[in-house]
Simulated scan of single mutants.
Amino acid sequence: MRDPYLLLGIAEDADDSAVEAAYLAAIKACPPERDAARFQALRHAYEQLRTQRDRVAHALFDRTPPEPADLLDRAAPVGAPRRPDRALVNSLLRGED
Rank of each mutant, 00 (worst) to 15 (best):
D35Y: 05
L72H: 08
T51M: 04
Q40K: 10
L93N: 06
V19R: 00
A59M: 12
R34K: 15
E96M: 07
V78F: 11
A11N: 11
L49C: 04
P32T: 05
L24H: 11
A18Y: 01
P66A: 06
A75P: 02
Y46K: 02
D54M: 12
A76E: 07
R94Q: 15
T64W: 08
P84L: 01
P66N: 05
D73N: 09
A45D: 00
A37G: 08
C30Y: 09
P81Y: 05
A41S: 10
A57Q: 15
L42G: 01
G9H: 03
P4L: 02
G9N: 04
P66T: 02
V56H: 12
R94W: 09
D13P: 04
E20R: 15
V78Y: 13
A22N: 01
D35Q: 07
L42D: 02
E20G: 07
A25P: 03
L72A: 06
H58A: 06
Y23E: 01
E33W: 05
L24V: 10
L71A: 02
R34N: 08
A14M: 03
A21I: 02
E47Q: 14
D85R: 14
P84M: 02
P68K: 08
E12Q: 12
R74D: 04
I10L: 00
A57F: 09
R83A: 12
A26N: 02
Q40S: 08
C30S: 14
I27N: 01
L24G: 04
V56W: 10
R43V: 08
N90L: 15
A25R: 14
P31Y: 05
Y5A: 00
A26K: 04
A41Q: 04
L24R: 15
D62Q: 14
Y46V: 05
F39P: 00
A75S: 04
D62R: 13
D73S: 14
V56M: 10
A80G: 06
L93K: 05
A69K: 08
D13I: 07
P84N: 03
P68V: 09
A18G: 08
P84D: 01
A11M: 09
C30N: 15
R43N: 13
R38Y: 07
N90W: 08
D70Q: 00
A21V: 03
A14R: 05
G79F: 04
P66L: 01
R63I: 11
E20T: 14
A22I: 03
E20I: 06
L72Q: 07
R63E: 12
R55W: 00
Q52P: 09
P31F: 04
P77D: 08
A14N: 03
A76Y: 06
